[in-house]
Simulated scan of single mutants.
Amino acid sequence: MTDSPRGTPPPAAGDDDPLARFATVDGDDGEGKKERSFWRELPILILVALVLSFLLQTFVARVYLIPSESMEPTLHGCPGCTGDRIVVEKIGYRFSDPRPGDVVVFRGPDSWSHDLVSTRSDNVVVRGLQEVGSYVGLVAPDENDLVKRVIATGGQTVECCDDEGRILVDGQPIDEPYVQMDFPFVPGEMTCETDLKSPRCFGPVTVPDDNLWMMGDNRSNSADSRYHVNDEYQGTIPVDNVIGKARWIVLPPSRMGSVPAPEIQN
């Protein structure tokens, strides 16, 4: 039985009330812990994001900017226009080799890299940051990465041209609907047999095993395998130099879509 009159409220919590004191301390401490926990976890979250970015871009896919017009009109990189950004998928070629018709990104052999200018700073610290940024996909790699189309693979013989100006693979003409810009070829006036030869003409070249013959879709403005026939690979590139297959255009929005790669029939 209580001594307090019925209906009388309990004493108000004041400064001397231990429950009130604990309630106040607990509330403030909870907010402080949450704030401190966020700032402690933020560096970990950033590190995890960077590691995931590195793993994805190293083993799965990477975005590349098209800087030149060698693949026009399939991939835009023309002067004055917005260069396409493409997603290059890296997994498929771990289980199969590139096939004729594929658009691939590859590291140019040494003979393709004479005009390569390093994008790295002369400052040691800045260069180190650039290298770290490259590993996580924030900075472009400092290497001669190129994009072209596979025309012939190891063991095939490629040359140009037949009587209609078409490329021959193993003696058979191939259909190339993606080529819209090429050197002139005029039957009877400018062919591979006339005194004034067509600039289309090259070969024949037999592609070494495990190598690829690469050409740009913009045939009149592409320094591709035709321009390197005197190097150690006869203008071809090793399959091991292939980084991945160009799958999608992701920017600009007006150009979004898949990269056409029709199988070359001969």
Rank of each mutant, 00 (worst) to 15 (best):
G7N: 06
P10W: 04
G14M: 07
D17T: 10
L19G: 14
R21C: 03
T24L: 13
E31I: 10
F38K: 01
R40Q: 09
I44M: 12
L47E: 06
V48D: 07
L50R: 10
L52V: 15
Q57K: 14
V60W: 10
A61G: 12
A61V: 13
Y64M: 12
Y64W: 15
S68N: 08
E69T: 09
M71Y: 02
T74M: 03
R85S: 10
E89M: 09
S96P: 06
G101A: 05
V105G: 04
V105I: 11
F106Y: 14
R107V: 13
L116H: 15
V117N: 14
V125R: 10
G128P: 10
S134D: 13
G137M: 10
L138Q: 07
V139G: 06
A140E: 15
D142K: 04
A152Y: 02
G155R: 10
D175F: 02
V179Y: 03
M190N: 05
C192L: 04
E193C: 04
T194W: 00
D195W: 00
D195C: 02
K197H: 02
V205Y: 00
D210A: 08
M214K: 03
M215Q: 04
M215F: 01
N218C: 06
R219C: 01
S225Q: 11
Y227C: 10
Y227I: 03
K245A: 14
V250F: 11
M256H: 08
M256L: 11
V259W: 02
P260S: 09
E263H: 06
